[in-house]
Amino acid sequence: MTTLPVRVGAARPDAGGAVGTPAPLPPKQRSRRTSFGTNQWVALAFVAPLIAYLVIFYAFPLYRNIELSLHDYTPRAFVQGNAAFVGIENYVAVFGSKTFPKALANTALFTIVSIAFQFGIGLILAVFFRNNFRLNGVLRGLFLVPWLLPLIVSASTWSSMMNSDNGVINSALAVIGVAPVNWLTSPDLVLASVIIANIWLGIPFNLVVLYSGLQNIPEDLYEAASLDGANAWQKFWRITFPLLRPVSLITILLGLIYTLKVVDIIWIMTAGGPGDSSTTLATWSYREAFGTGNPDFSPAAAVGNVLILIALIFGFIYLRIQNRTEK
């Protein structure tokens, strides 16, 4: 954890790129006068690989994706490169599809319910770990495990635990007399099941970020409140909660942006099924393009672009809030 304060503290000085230190050494002045133009070339040389990289590996795929969505790409047209231009037809088809309202509702439910629980549980745990006790650091480290595991590992573990016939969850329920639950095959339950797994995955991130946010609240505030006779409940609502608001907002928005794009966990556990019952916009797009034996890239790209738009809306809200909190 020793790197943390360095980094957080180091992010601010010199942010504008100006030389802030009032210690003008003679050599510095000389080099500044003679080589101001050269400096820009040097800076460009250092950043050139990144710019080339962004153009080739971000801009180009995104451009290809828009192009896909405006043409009618069949697998054959893909190879021959003669797909017909259809304008916004793919978008019209996507919005008119009966999967669209279902996927949109599922995306909203999946995202909002996941975030609510991840954040709530993460906050409770962060407040708990603010206490001083033995093994605190070790246990906090162990809480990172779900976040570090490859998603395929977590997803298949949850699938095995939620198995209807001999999964451990149903066995545990049987002990208290509950009939077997079809976690992954019942259309009414399957979305809840993937949400449960996703909440579990997201708790570590919320815990770590909120915990580091708590570290920045000065201890004397709590001591002063104690002297005034405040109890733990009051301290939480009057000190922790308001002071943690900026960090909380950023955590929630980052969570939103990244939960919107989730494909792996849902795809591995349910493939979006049965039917469309656990299909989100991201898994729908994935299914159209890669999930069936008969790839349909153009509608998939259209769905993907709709998803980008939604993600960017939350993205800009996030950037605005972050800008405001930094000022």
């Binding site: 794009k261 797009s285 994935y286 998939a300 993907g304």
Partner: peptide
């Protein structure tokens, strides 16, 4: 913020 599935299609 760009979804992985979109990048995957482009790639």
């Amino acid at each position: 913020m760009i979804p992985g599935v979109v990048m995957a299609m482009g790639f």
